[in-house]
Amino acid sequence: MDVRRLELLLTLSRLGSMHAVSEVLGVTTSTVSQQIAALAKEVGTPLLEPDGRRVRLTPAGRRLANHAVQILAAHEAARADLDPSAEPAGTVRVAAFHTAISDTLLPVVHQLPPAVRLEIQEQEPPEALAMLERDQVDLALTYDYNLAPAAFDPALEAMPLWESSWSLAVPSRSRRIRGTAVDVVAAFADTDWIVNSRHLADEQVVRTLAALAGFEPRITQRADSLALVQDMITAGLGIALMPAAYPKTTGISLRPLRDPEPRMRAYALVRRGRTNWPAPALVLDLLSNRRERVTKTSR
């Protein structure tokens, strides 16, 4: 089977329309249609069926798209293996969230050889993952929470980077509550909440903790910047989850959350078959080495 045709089928299964496939892969819709028709003839079974004015994958098409994940990964790995001794060179495109860029990625930049350069975009996990799946970046640094775990696409490989504890940020005048995370959160059942504007993960954690405490959180504010979240808290607009190690501004206190303890987990993700490409592999090695150093010094 032609791997290019398999890539078109897999992309169609993810994007849902030939027009979207043509835009992402830079081919005409006619080419997409013709190549998938040729693939159907090659495997001897229809892969598409009408769906109104559009088309959708048949059950056989969906099964072949699932197989295509592993086939394309093996193809990528084979290409990389043709020259395993090549010196790292080229551009590594990275999409990552703010903290990962500043605390994880930038500290290793000086270790890269001159032949390897980075192109970095600040993106929240949903955007970073979408760009990675569409092959618009080579590496994505994302995060989830232990109380809101992410389900990664099987076409991607994930490498854990670090974890951080999160606390409840409240105005300093707020009374202190002893007990578990549920007890602490329950004391603020009538308070407005602030959550991330670009990623739902911390909102899921808030809703999980609130559900354990027996109430529905009143989410009224959304902001991406932690500094802005702090400003909103001091302005009396609500409370929020924040990293326990984040520098606090005047007028804010952090209430520790235990049993359960919310923890953010950062990951580096690449498409399967790309981990042996010299330049991305070097960046991953540097990130892994930094993770090990940080883990040892934090014990």
Rank of each mutant, 00 (worst) to 15 (best):
P217N: 05
V283L: 13
D81S: 13
P50R: 10
E7I: 03
M1V: 11
A96K: 07
D224A: 13
T58H: 01
L212F: 08
A68P: 12
G44L: 12
D183T: 02
E42M: 07
A279M: 02
K41H: 14
L269M: 07
P113C: 09
P46Y: 03
D285F: 04
A148V: 10
R4W: 13
R255W: 06
S13P: 08
P107Y: 00
A148P: 05
D51M: 14
H199W: 14
Q34Y: 12
M1I: 12
A210L: 02
T297R: 03
T45D: 11
F188Y: 10
A78G: 08
E76S: 07
T91P: 11
A115W: 09
N196K: 11
T297F: 00
M159N: 14
P126S: 06
V116Y: 06
V24P: 13
G26C: 02
K296G: 07
E87I: 08
D103E: 11
L106P: 09
D138L: 01
V294H: 06
L286K: 10
A95S: 04
P280C: 04
T28K: 02
L139F: 02
H19M: 15
D81L: 09
P107V: 00
E203H: 03
L286T: 06
D183P: 06
D2G: 05
S164F: 03
A279R: 10
R173V: 11
G236Q: 00
A240L: 01
V27Q: 05
D231N: 07
V32Q: 05
T295R: 02
T208W: 14
M1S: 10
L212Q: 13
P113G: 08
M232K: 01
T295A: 04
V27H: 05
D192C: 01
I101F: 02
P126H: 02
V294W: 04
S174N: 07
V27P: 07
K296V: 06
S288R: 00
A128F: 04
I233V: 03
V3T: 11
V270H: 06
V27T: 08
L161T: 00
G90L: 07
L141K: 04
D135S: 07
G52W: 06
R176E: 12
A235P: 01
E7K: 11
A115P: 12
A227K: 13
R54P: 13
L287G: 01
V195A: 01
L226D: 10
E127G: 10
L57M: 05
A95L: 00
V43P: 10
D51H: 15
P260N: 11
V69K: 15
L282V: 09
D144H: 06
V24C: 04
K248W: 15
L141S: 02
R293A: 01
A73N: 03
Q34L: 13
A227R: 14
A38Y: 08
I71Y: 09
V109N: 07
R271G: 10
R63W: 07
H67Y: 15
A95F: 02
G16Q: 08
L106A: 10
Y145W: 05
V94D: 11
V185L: 02
V32T: 11
A189S: 12
